[in-house]
Write a protein that binds this DNA or RNA. Sequence first.
DNA 1: TTGTATGCGTTATCAG
DNA 2: CTGATAACGCATACAA
Lengths: 322, 322
Amino acid sequence: MELRKPKLEDVAKLAGVSRTTVSRVLNNRGYIGDKTREKVYQAMETLDYHPNEIARSLFINKTNIIGLIFPTTNNPFYAQMIYHLENNFEALGYKVLLCNSGGRVDKERAYLDMLQRHQVDGIVAGAHNRGIEIYEKTKLPIVSIDRYLAPHVPVVSSDNYAGGILATSLLLDKGCQHIIHINGPIDLETPANLRRKAYEDIMKKNGLPYLTYEISETTIRDLFDQNPHVEGIFASDDLIATQVLTEARKRGYRVPEDLKVIGYDGADMTCILRPELTTIQQPIDAMAELSVQLLIDQIEQRTDQITLHNSLSVKLIEGQTT
Amino acid sequence: MELRKPKLEDVAKLAGVSRTTVSRVLNNRGYIGDKTREKVYQAMETLDYHPNEIARSLFINKTNIIGLIFPTTNNPFYAQMIYHLENNFEALGYKVLLCNSGGRVDKERAYLDMLQRHQVDGIVAGAHNRGIEIYEKTKLPIVSIDRYLAPHVPVVSSDNYAGGILATSLLLDKGCQHIIHINGPIDLETPANLRRKAYEDIMKKNGLPYLTYEISETTIRDLFDQNPHVEGIFASDDLIATQVLTEARKRGYRVPEDLKVIGYDGADMTCILRPELTTIQQPIDAMAELSVQLLIDQIEQRTDQITLHNSLSVKLIEGQTT
DNA sequence: TTGTATGCGTTATCAG
DNA sequence: CTGATAACGCATACAA
């Protein structure tokens, strides 16, 4: 019982040629006699030979592996983003190493170190932690999703400010006066926080009071306890919006008559699972595609093609909650 | 401007020692003088040295990389499964290469080939294609999720038959007579298909007619058109259940008064986005954990620990749709 | 306690 | 058209 995996040399021996020749057949390089090529193919077949990419990577100094760092796949937005990133990279011959940072700085840092040790050709970073100096000093090609990382790192995001305007305007147009914004942990560095700024700007412009709740430090229940007469709620993502809806129904609010709710993201899964929710849809697929392109441009040194800030437009999806 | 990444030798030179010594420091092997160790650490720091795992893997003949093959991350069930697989592997020092087969046999085959070339230490296969011979002949450690692959490949699944019984019984207990099952493409090899069998068995036992729709060849609309008096619907997953609910509401059915609906999977995201849906919850986290353990056991040659069939129990989550 | 020499599986260079 | 050899960066056996 031979447990060792067959290597180039085994194929060469069986085919009666040199390793060089087998390598040439493998990579279609240089001229090779037809009968030789055939012999080599035969040998590879009978041995069930799989070229060792590790050895090849070592020599070539390129792994064709991309690191993906996100808080979690277990979220409709990231799940869809990761899906499309993987698909696009695969089409270009790249593989994808998945890292779930879980929102923890230490994990993200450890992952970054790991990815560098593994010689990845580039990184798409969608985890949003602060103060990770490696992004500043590394020369590794990086693309960031929805987050400023360092001066030289391109950012791909959707137009969060426009989305915030769109959402808030809709609630205003539908006659809401008492509108509350609710979001996750506030982080001023995040482009996504522009959603909040847009909300506050437009409320101010309309001479209305504004109020933003942060879901980490308060519960949705508090929001309703403290604002029983709220007429409109703009949630910074669809999960929060759904939880708001759930609580509102529990309290007997009629939606959209008594209360209007609008979410944010519009991921595929959310649209299937909550088709009635009005939301601002981000162009997730396009964002993924653009990220891949920007990363590949860096990897292949087409640095002239790279724009540092890339903001794609969002779209209002009207359901029955407004 | 030095673009080349620093290597062991650079560290050695800077620290005034040999490569061997640096390697020893790196791996904590053998005895090393404290001052030497300190010098080496200093050198690594100033050079921003990251050991090359590719080179190490080549020598060690182990990559610490696991391949994950699933249809898509863009699905609450798989997204959660992948999340926990990654988490568990990471805790054990393994990294994860993500492959979205998209349900296509050719892609799955290509991915398998790729994973072997990349020398992964093992594979968790959750993609469900038929006739992929590689699973039969490879000696690579593999764990399959919810799917029979080959005699020697351990399968992890939840108790699909019990789940089917649970779901159908609930509908019966609630007084439904006319109950329909609806699922995705039927594949008799899939353990998940036991859900259907359970449904049919119990309906037969109760002397009631049974009817299974396959969503790929019919639409949910057809189901209602052809069975206006349906009282209960057991969907083989929560996404289908949700689409059924959406259509039912559009047609004016009152749920659960006129029509009761139960889904399957009970993933975290589904429970947040559709808290009112009654469903059969699979122990996704436990399945992931067990899969990791079974794979590691194979990798570390603890073959005695391995049970080939592993069926975890499911749980009824009663919402307001029944 | 530290250094030298060799090999992991592949590809590129150069010679034939 | 094909083959011998060095090199990719690291870890081990063996020697010092």
